[in-house]
Computed example of a mutant assay.
Amino acid sequence: MEDSKMIIWLTETILSSSDDSDVSSWGEICSEKYESSEEDDESDKLFFPLMQYLLRLRRKRVDDYLHIIDSWSDTEFKKRLRISRKTAMRLIADLEKSGFIASHKFGLKPLEPKLCFYIFLSFIANTEPLTPMATRFDISISSTFRVIRRVVAWILTKLNDAIKWPQDYNEIKTICETFHVKTGISNMLGVIDCTHIRIEKPKNARQYCNPRGYFSVILQATVDANMRFTNIFCGEPGSSNCSRVLRKSPLYNTASQNRNALFPDNTFLVGHSGYPALPWLVPPFRENKRLTLQQREFNSLHSATRKISDKAFQLLKRRFQRIKLFTVYRNIAFITDTIVAACILHNYCLNENDYLEEQE
């Protein structure tokens, strides 16, 4: 009878446990339970082989899901994880060399870079909670979250390489010419705009409640003619307007102190009517009955141009759907870091010609 109870307890404990940190103690617990019984040594032949079998079964579940991902077609891989397999493999190779993924074991399965990156992609590609994600990969929720934070921290190290302001004369000239071809506006270096990222109600709720009535943080970005981010500033509370966010950003401080450093040869950004008119930022003319025909034509071009930033934000949120809504998470620093990481991957994918089906 005691043997039967022990078998039931052991099976339920190992197969239903979601915390890998408990795995290493299962053997000790079994030993303690067994020593407290009066059974003879013959029970060893039953309990410990069973425990080893169940532990191997858990390891197999992880391996099986990795094999499932590897068995996906390239189309299915991209549909589920939102980037191409080729892009993912290149990033995994970089992650392996980075040292951000510890070499020691957490529980049963060494958290190899490939596994960690797949966990991160599963997290950022959709809005599902961590629990089903942890179940699929057969690691604890705490380990899943730890993996996500480590991969985010690693991606942030690529910020200056992935999102950079155009400095080279030829690069600036190319951007301006591309904008001119697409919009008819000369000397334009980019479009500036903000988007709200919905979050759960934080502690200082009033500060993060935006005019639309939900809680959010703001992502400010400048976008080139190919929808690449050339500058981002993220984390301001949703109650702030675009003009206030701009004045808090490093972009504003640098441009105010030394315009030519960012906007040589009278280049400029365009932004909607909520932005102030500055030597390097051009909003549309205020709509009134006194506008000339040329001013109205400029406003029409201006409006069409701003759609580039709208498309860039839409693409970001379609590819990385976590950016649409952060459920459960209330740590603003983690949310901000994840948004920035998504922006970095957005640029990385564009540089790799890794487009979504909608773009293609």
Score class of each variant (00 low, 15 high):
residue 252 Y to G: 03
residue 136 R to H: 09
residue 316 L to H: 03
residue 287 E to W: 07
residue 143 S to K: 02
residue 244 R to V: 01
residue 339 I to T: 03
residue 239 S to N: 11
residue 92 I to E: 03
residue 75 T to S: 14
residue 311 K to W: 13
residue 327 T to A: 12
residue 280 W to V: 08
residue 161 D to L: 13
residue 176 C to Y: 00
residue 24 S to A: 14
residue 54 L to F: 03
residue 59 R to M: 11
residue 282 V to D: 05
residue 275 Y to P: 00
residue 332 I to R: 03
residue 110 P to V: 10
residue 240 S to W: 12
residue 240 S to C: 12
residue 292 T to L: 11
residue 239 S to L: 09
residue 324 K to Y: 01
residue 164 K to Q: 11
residue 153 A to N: 13
residue 257 Q to A: 14
residue 35 E to L: 12
residue 194 C to R: 10
residue 158 K to M: 13
residue 296 R to F: 00
residue 30 C to Y: 08
residue 247 R to V: 03
residue 175 I to A: 06
residue 244 R to T: 04
residue 190 G to L: 09
residue 44 D to G: 02
residue 165 W to Q: 02
residue 233 F to G: 02
residue 19 D to V: 10
residue 8 I to T: 11
residue 12 E to H: 10
residue 64 D to V: 02
residue 267 T to Q: 01
residue 277 A to W: 11
residue 111 L to G: 00
residue 182 K to C: 07
residue 47 F to E: 05
residue 352 E to C: 08
residue 41 D to H: 14
residue 65 Y to V: 03
residue 60 K to G: 02
residue 286 R to A: 00
residue 81 L to G: 04
residue 310 D to G: 14
residue 28 E to Q: 15
residue 114 K to W: 10
residue 130 L to P: 05
residue 360 E to R: 15
residue 284 P to G: 03
residue 276 P to I: 08
residue 22 D to N: 11
residue 119 I to N: 05
residue 222 T to Q: 08
residue 74 D to I: 12
residue 171 E to W: 09
residue 266 N to S: 15
residue 124 I to E: 04
residue 348 Y to R: 14
residue 355 Y to V: 10
residue 350 L to P: 00
residue 109 K to A: 01
residue 321 Q to Y: 12
residue 95 L to H: 07
residue 39 E to K: 14
residue 219 L to E: 00
residue 312 A to Y: 08
residue 237 P to R: 09
residue 336 T to N: 10
residue 123 F to K: 11
residue 67 H to F: 09
residue 252 Y to V: 10
residue 108 L to S: 13
residue 138 D to C: 14
residue 52 Q to L: 15
residue 78 K to E: 09
residue 61 R to H: 06
residue 174 T to C: 10
residue 252 Y to F: 15
residue 291 L to N: 06
residue 349 C to P: 08
residue 299 N to L: 02
residue 108 L to D: 08
residue 261 A to H: 13
residue 37 S to G: 09
residue 230 T to N: 14
residue 253 N to Q: 13
